[in-house]
Amino acid sequence: MATLEVEALEKRFGGVQAVRGVSFAIRPGEMLALIGPNGAGKSTCFNMLNGQLRPDAGRVRLKGRDITGMAPRRVWRLGVGRTFQITATFGSMTVRENVQMALLSHHRRLMRLWRPVARMDASAADALLARLGMAEQAGRPCGILAYGDLKRVELAIALANDPALLLMDEPTAGMAPQERVGLMALTADIARERGIAVLFTEHDMDVVFSHADRILVLDRGTLIAEGAPAAVRADPRVREVYLGSGNMMSPGQGGH
């Protein structure tokens, strides 16, 4: 069964139709990229999947269960992890504490008033951070972390819930090229290892074409292409509205 099924999603803001009739599905372990020009509706789409926005019409199903319009925190409990375009972490906490918060929430222990956090779920958090290569940073406050490291912390937080689906909004924005490839390779490994479906938006075409199993192209709220990287790259309509002549990408990239 598909991890996520999206059916005829619609959203209007005032007079603007931001998303119209978008349908797609993701299988466990699959890396699916959502690309398109600025303002094409990518973020709107994303925000409807995890409940930050309520769609005007259409259905979102997670492992067969209807989650349309559910609040983000309920969607999370059903197994959807999320990273943000502009990183959102708890700046006044250490890296470890950030992950501990996700674990404590997962185990429904947030309302406890007595036992200090320092003694709860610390080793589980450390194990997760080690998997992401962040073990050495565990004790540092998130407020002073480099941007690329924050992206990794976000990934660790998103994974704390053993999600079935990861939603990553521009996961490598603001990272150096080398870091981008590293992070996406790691994500792909973990996704395959644990059977997590990953949906990501991305502006770096090198990242998209080397890590996506499949690509969706959105323009003015509508899906205009869907398929394997090579086919999407060759699609004339995609070239016209989005990719351009291809001068702005590294030469000779294609699939992996």
């Binding site: 609040a71 999370w76 999320r82 708890f90 906490m93 918060m101 929430s105 997962h106």
Partner: peptide
């Protein structure tokens, strides 16, 4: 910690079930 979490980032707090 949950109090501070929602202060630091409501977006992230809600996204991890808080």
């Amino acid at each position: 910690y949950a109090l501070r979490a929602q202060r630091d980032s409501v977006l992230r707090a809600e996204a991890i079930g808080i």
